[in-house]
Every structure is written in C-alpha cells, then in structure tokens.
Computed example of a mutant assay.
Amino acid sequence: MFLTERSLKNKQQKYLQKLLNELEPSDHDVPDDPKKLSVCDAGIVQNVNVEAFLRKSRISDLIIVFDMNLYKNDKDFDYMPVIQSALHASKNGLPFPKIQIRRLVHEAPAEFLTFEGYGDDCPTILWFTLCNKSFKAIENYEPKIPYDATVNDGRPFNDFPVFSDGTNFETFKLEYSELHFQQLHELMYHNVTSCMPYIKHHIGKAVERKIRREEHEAQNDT
C-alpha cells in the first residue's frame, strides 16, 4: 500500500496532535488544515526558554538550565536570557525565583548561578553557562584526548575563548574539529562536576519541598 502525499501529511498531523495532547491537552491546538502548520523558533522571544517547566501542571521543584547563549565576550555577560525568562514569567503569572536585575546585569561572568525558589510552589533554578574561568585557571590540566599545543597557538588545552575574538564557537559555525568539540565538552564537564555539592544540596531541598506539598495535599483530602 502506497501513501499519497495528502494521507502522509494527515498521519503526521494526527501523530503531532497526539503528542501535543499528551503534553498539554488544553494549551495546544493543531489546525485542521493539513496544508498549514505554524512553527515558531523558540529563540525569537527567548533564547533560553524555561516557561514550559514553570507551568503549574509540570509541578517542577528544580530546573537545571544549560545556557548556550552567545554573549558579548568572555569578560562581559549581560545574563539577558535569565532576565527575559524572569520578566516573561512575571507577565504570564508564572512562578520564578526573585532576581535583582540591576545587579545581575553587572554580575561578573560565572559558570554557575543559583536562583532559589520562594515557598513550595516556586522552583529553584540552577543556571549553567559556557564561562571558561575556573577551568582555564587549572594548571597542568591533562585533557582526555591526545593533545598537541601547537594547534592551540602554543596554549594549554584549557586556555581558549568561548565568546571573545579568536573563538572557534560562533553561532553559525556548524562543524567543529575534534579538538574544539573536546574543549567545549571538557569545559562543561568541569563546570558541572565542580558544582556537584551545590546540585546535590538543591536536589535534596527539592525532594523535601515535594514531600511537604504531598503531605499538605493528603491532609486536605482527609
């Protein structure tokens, strides 16, 4: 049996509708016209969008974000993705940890930021960036791949810019050498594992929050 173009589109539309209904049955509606389907790039309004996880139906206690946004340079982060997320959440009545925008704009680049939720209905957000500061400062770092310093202008493996002039990680660069891929991989591995005590701490607090909420709901049901 051969599928016509129209029948194939109908099957694709039904499958997409099924997925959307499983996620948010009341918030999504796919048009009946199989010839038209609107698609929106999430980066148009917010380059790092956490709104879906802030909805009440998700009951999120802890959100871990990996911010791959393009910043001005390695010494100047404006943290606009955080600010945009906070403002958008406020406009739409969604819970978002309290942040000090004026202070955040002038905050020095950091590998890891914590935005702790208030009460039991607001999630805590752990925000990781591509900041290469503490990783770059490690002396005599031994990479996980064979490394020849001559391919990195004679610099150590962990000494490389992510955003500044000379970077190998521009937004529209879609192909990377093994070296450049491994540098970014080991950078993020370091940024996450070096913060593991904080991650475990906030996971514990999130579990406690979830238990309190379930106990409160159980009391209301009795």
Rank of each mutant, 00 (worst) to 15 (best):
P81S: 09
I64F: 03
F77N: 00
V39I: 15
S57H: 03
K72L: 11
R55E: 08
N21P: 05
D61N: 12
F77S: 00
F66L: 12
K72V: 11
D74C: 04
K35H: 14
D76C: 10
E22Q: 14
L54A: 08
D76E: 13
D33T: 12
L19P: 03
I59R: 11
I64N: 02
P81W: 05
I64T: 03
D67S: 02
P31C: 10
L16C: 09
E22S: 11
N47S: 11
K36L: 15
A42L: 11
A52M: 13
P81I: 08
S57W: 03
D78V: 09
R58S: 08
S57E: 11
S57A: 10
V50L: 06
A52P: 06
V82H: 00
K18R: 15
A42E: 10
D74N: 04
K36Y: 13
C40Y: 12
D78N: 13
F53Q: 11
L62C: 02
R58C: 00
D41T: 03
Q46E: 09
R55F: 07
D67E: 03
I59N: 10
A42K: 09
L70S: 02
S38A: 11
F53I: 04
P34V: 06
R58T: 11
S38E: 10
D32R: 15
I44H: 12
L19T: 02
D32F: 13
K75N: 13
Q17P: 04
P81A: 10
L37T: 14
L54Q: 00
L70G: 04
K36Q: 15
D76W: 06
Y79F: 12
L23H: 07
V65L: 07
V50W: 01
V45E: 15
R58A: 10
V65Y: 04
S60H: 01
I63P: 00
F77W: 00
N21C: 02
R58K: 13
D27L: 15
V65H: 05
V48N: 02
A52T: 11
E24R: 14
P34K: 01
Y71C: 00
D78W: 02
Q46D: 09
F66Q: 05
A52W: 09
S57Q: 10
H28Y: 15
K75V: 06
D41M: 07
V39E: 08
E51K: 10
P81L: 07
L62S: 01
I44W: 09
R58D: 02
E51Q: 10
V65I: 07
V30N: 07
E22C: 05
E22G: 14
Y79T: 00
D27M: 14
V30E: 03
I59E: 12
S60W: 01
N69C: 11
E24V: 09
E22P: 01
D29P: 04
Q46T: 05
G43F: 05
L20K: 02
V45T: 14
S60F: 04
L23W: 06
Q17W: 08
V82D: 01
S60Q: 06
I63K: 04
V39G: 06
L23P: 06
I63N: 03
L62D: 01
D27C: 09
S26A: 09
D29Y: 02
L37F: 11
I63L: 06
Q17K: 10
F77H: 02
P31F: 07
N69V: 07
A42C: 03
D41H: 07
M80Q: 15
P81V: 09
D41R: 08
S60D: 01
I59L: 05
L23F: 13
P25H: 00
I64Q: 03
